[in-house]
């Protein structure tokens, strides 16, 4: 099973901000159990999607040479239930990035309504620490690349966007 909770990025401004989309559909099995007769996208998975959006934004600024792991969510608020047919916009903005950790401010929206908001703190596991873990990270990034998740349509300024520079450098190193 692929643990990917975003469909693709629509904005990617290296080291600053990323926006990803998540379409919620009744074709997703879990919605039929959560809850029977009243399908609602679990807030835990919305949190995971926000954490992936922010984690890839942070990872890219290190050319994916560090494993970026979710460490803590100091605060979070959820405002309404997300239903099939909703399109979630996950916006993450970098608050700070240090060598060994970082934080993003994350917001989930449906249309112009703010559905969830939170702060997400990541810990960074450096290059050369654990080979299996880092290769797992690389294969995750590759999977994301193959699925076209980074094929950003337009950048924040409206210009046709290119691949995030960290992803390009990452590919050159691996190739």
């Amino acid at each position: 099973m692929r643990w990917i909770w975003i469909d693709r990025f629509v904005e990617f401004e290296s080291g600053k901000r990323a926006v990803a989309l998540k379409n919620v559909t009744l074709a997703e099995d879990h919605l039929h159990d959560h809850f029977p007769g009243w399908p609602v996208m679990p807030n835990s998975l919305i949190t995971e999607g926000l954490a992936q959006t922010g984690g890839l934004l942070i990872g890219e600024s290190f050319d994916f040479e560090k494993k970026v792991v979710l460490a803590r969510i100091p605060k979070a608020a959820y405002h309404f239930a997300v239903r099939p047919g909703d399109q979630l916009h996950y916006t993450t903005e970098v608050e700070y990035v240090h060598e060994d950790g970082s934080m993003v401010r994350a917001t989930s929206r449906v249309g112009d309504r703010v559905q969830a908001e939170m702060e997400i703190v990541y810990g960074h596991i450096g290059a050369g620490t654990s080979a299996p873990e880092l290769s797992e990270q690389k294969s995750f990034v590759f999977t994301m690349k193959l699925l076209g998740i980074f094929d950003v349509g337009r950048g924040a300024n409206g210009a046709r966007a290119i691949e995030p520079p960290g992803l390009i450098r990452f590919q050159e190193k691996v190739a």
């Binding site: 803590r72 608050e95 060994d100």
Partner: peptide
């Protein structure tokens, strides 16, 4: 330990 990073920030 991870919290100290956040506190310092």
């Amino acid at each position: 330990s991870i919290d100290f990073l956040d506190i310092v920030f």
